[in-house]
Computed example of a mutant assay.
Amino acid sequence: MTPTTPGQSAADPLEDPDARFGPDGQPLDPRQIARASLDAGRNASLWIVGGAVLACVAASLVWGPRLGASLFAVMLVICAVVRGVVRGPGPAVLVVRRRSVDVLTLVFLAITIAALAQILP
């Protein structure tokens, strides 16, 4: 059994493609993360999801909040499917935690918003 460093589990950290570790198994450098965050404006997933949210808000203003919320729930389901299917680093705007946590959170939000859109006046 190989010894582990503090904060590292005995399991192989590279086994999970979503792990926030570099190729050598060490946590990523915060400066590298900060530089990557400055490039967020050039990230296509950010623009696509942001545009979809604006479209849902516009639909809500034009055709009513029930339709806008329903469209937003559909967008969340699409995001969950994309997050669940795309391997590797994935779309930056959808990657927050582990793949399973992200997908379950998006599906839960979609179901909740869709239910509230139909129940509330």
Rank of each mutant, 00 (worst) to 15 (best):
I78S: 03
D29V: 08
V57S: 08
C79M: 09
G64D: 02
R83K: 07
G64T: 00
L94D: 08
A19Y: 01
L104A: 15
P23M: 06
D29W: 06
V103N: 01
Q26F: 06
P89L: 09
V107T: 09
I48T: 01
R35V: 14
R31I: 02
V93L: 08
A69S: 11
C79S: 11
A117Y: 02
A80Y: 00
Q26K: 13
Q32F: 04
L67T: 04
E15L: 09
V81L: 14
G84M: 07
A114D: 03
A80C: 04
A34Q: 15
L109E: 06
R87C: 00
W47A: 14
A110C: 08
D29C: 07
P3F: 11
L38T: 06
G50F: 03
L109A: 13
R35K: 12
Q8H: 15
G50R: 05
A110V: 15
V86I: 14
L120I: 10
V57D: 06
G88W: 02
R98V: 03
S100V: 14
P3W: 04
A69P: 00
V95G: 04
R97P: 00
P3D: 15
R87W: 01
V81R: 09
P30Q: 10
V74P: 00
N43W: 04
T5N: 14
A52K: 00
Q32T: 05
Q32P: 00
R20Q: 11
D18A: 07
R97Y: 02
G51N: 09
V86C: 03
R42F: 15
L116Q: 10
R35T: 12
A44T: 11
V77G: 09
P89R: 12
